[in-house]
């Protein structure tokens, strides 16, 4: 429980700070705040991942003032689908790699977010952002995977989890 709380707090912090990093598109973010979510998934605790996701989205967006905004709904929707997809991937095998889970999560997250955006504006235009989002998502997904992998090893060695 302590680990989950610490990771959730981490998530909120990254969620808020991440906005300051320049992004190649007028909308979107890098997705580094998904690192805590990924970590807990790699520990095999998908339900806790949902919890962390919701905490970081709700608290984070309240801090930056985007709670219940379109961006918030897109992010949460994409996040939930990503957690479900990563969970499914985990459940299928006990031998998965961090990169595989992370990249799957990022891809599902981006595709769903763009679909939600398209549904909200009732127009197909947001999909034009998808190529860049997918490529950017892969970069941060690999970065997240590395961080999460290291974290899991530390957590295991210290028997925190």
């Amino acid at each position: 429980m302590v680990v989950v709380a610490v990771l959730a707090a981490f998530g909120v912090a990254i969620y808020v700070v991440e906005r300051l990093i320049p992004f190649p598109l007028p909308v979107g973010r890098w997705g580094l705040s998904n690192y805590p979510v990924l970590t807990i998934i790699l520990c095999g605790r998908a339900p806790d991942a949902l919890l962390i996701l919701i905490v970081k989205s709700v608290v984070g967006s309240m801090i930056i003032g985007s709670f219940l905004s379109p961006q918030f709904i897109m992010g949460l929707g994409g996040g939930i689908c990503a957690v479900l997809a990563m969970w499914a991937l985990e459940a299928c095998s006990n031998k998965v790699s961090a990169v595989r889970v992370s990249v799957t999560g990022a891809t599902v997250n981006n595709v769903i977010q763009v679909l939600i955006a398209s549904a909200m504006v009732k127009n197909w235009a947001p999909t034009a952002y998808l190529p860049v989002l997918l490529i950017v998502g892969e970069i941060s997904a690999v970065a997240n995977a590395y961080l999460a992998w290291k974290t899991v090893i530390i957590l295991k060695e210290g028997r925190f989890i």
């Binding site: 790699l42 520990c43 095999g44 006990n94 031998k95 998965v96 790699s97 961090a98 990169v99 595989r100 995977a145 590395y146 992998w149 899991v152 090893i153 295991k156």
Partner: peptide, 9 residues
């Protein structure tokens, strides 16, 4: 189970 976790395959 979790000892199998790899970074990359």
């Amino acid at each position: 189970k979790r000892n199998d976790l790899q970074f990359f395959s």
